[in-house]
Nucleic acid binder design. Structure first.
Length: 348
DNA sequence: GACGCGTGGCC
DNA sequence: TGGCCAAGCGT
């Protein structure tokens, strides 16, 4: 049987039951593909279901407030994706009469839709012969064709796509595209390729030349650096002091957090907290002992967060405010601060 | 083309 | 634990 025939057959009997496969529409495809960018399936599944409940169609998403869409994205990371999705929905309503386009150029004109997502929507939702090359498929194809180009480079991905396109079966573009993704996710794994379970192992050039373990080629990732994040824990009655990150911050714009800043690992948290509170405009800052600690990671940074209890005199200056505990909206708080709040809660 | 952008899980 | 990874995109 042909390569494509075996892949599609394998997919038919091995495909996972995932919510976006149950109701395959351009909208569900779009939302799920954006959520799945750099994000694992297990994390996405519950968030996808909740998001679809909250924004069941493109009109509801287009008319939603940005902060509500971002809140629905809470914990998924890469929040630009949420803002792009909402802007994209508005663009679809305004420019395409509310119908998600199937044309590649039209799709690429939507914010957050790049080569992968455009191909995914075209193939999965419209059955067009556009194999979607994500990390999984790049790995599968690099091994299948024994291509030793850097799969992180656009040129390599283009070449792999051109090698795959001739295999797209007539009337089976969606199954072919998704089968490649699924094979990469379930069988042709980065570390342990389960070639014994692979339907195309005997056609795989990497397998035939003993290079499965060394393909695909990719640039080594950058090293992560340790960071100390010192946070102020200021309570007043049943309220806690929070600041809102600037709307134009590149990292987590608009999110609420405990006042503080990142710094080198050697800094003294109480000193940093004092400095931060004084810079906010508070007088008579007193710091006490650390009350919560958490570990977090943001691309290339390993963060050790320490919350230091402090007292201040005077009203909250602009940009920060005392929020009643029962009104702290965890969906609008950074994950780092959420971890600190939870850690404190757990130890009380 | 390199870098910034989040997070959770796994070993 | 730290490194590595996961259905990328925008600049």
């Amino acid at each position: 049987m042909t390569l494509e025939g075996r892949l599609v057959d394998w997919f038919r009997s091995n495909r996972r039951d995932l919510p976006w496969r149950r109701q395959r529409t351009p909208y569900t495809t779009w939302v799920s593909e954006i959520m799945l960018q750099q994000t694992t399936v297990d994390v996405v599944v519950p968030r996808f279901v909740a998001f679809l409940r909250r924004f069941p169609d493109i009109q509801s998403l287009a008319s939603a407030e940005e902060e509500d869409v971002v809140a629905a994205w809470s914990g998924l990371g890469y929040y630009r994706r949420a803002r792009g999705l909402r802007l994209g929905a508005r663009a679809v309503v305004e420019r395409f009469g509310g119908t998600i386009p199937s044309d590649e150029k039209d799709l690429l004109s939507l914010p957050g839709v790049g080569p992968y997502t455009a191909a995914a929507i075209r193939s999965l939702a419209f059955d067009q012969p556009a194999p979607a090359i994500d990390g999984n498929v790049a790995r599968v194809a690099a091994r299948l064709f024994a291509d030793d180009g850097d799969v992180g480079k656009a040129g390599t991905r283009r070449r792999l796509r051109e090698r795959l396109v001739p295999h797209v079966p007539e009337g089976g573009a969606a199954a072919f595209s998704e089968a490649l993704i699924e094979l990469g996710a379930l069988v042709c794994r980065p570390k342990s390729a389960r070639c014994d379970a692979c339907p195309v192992a005997d056609l795989c050039a990497a397998r035939l030349t003993g290079r499965v373990a060394t393909l695909p080629v990719r640039q080594p990732p950058r090293r992560s650096r340790p960071v100390l994040s010192a946070r102020a824990w200021v309570e007043r009655g049943c309220r806690v002091l929070l600041v809102q990150r600037p709307a134009d911050a590149s990292l987590l714009p608009g999110f609420l957090e405990l006042p503080g800043r990142w710094g080198p690992a050697g800094e003294n948290p109480p000193d940093v907290v004092r400095e931060v509170l004084e810079n906010l405009g508070f007088d008579d800052v007193r710091t006490y002992e650390p009350v919560a600690e958490a570990r977090h990671a943001i691309t290339h940074h390993r963060i050790r967060s320490v919350a230091v209890r402090a007292d201040v005199v005077g009203a909250a200056p602009g940009g920060c405010r005392f929020v009643p505990w029962d009104e702290v909206d965890l969906e609008r708080v950074t994950t780092e601060t959420r971890k600190l709040l939870r850690s404190r809660e757990a130890s009380v």
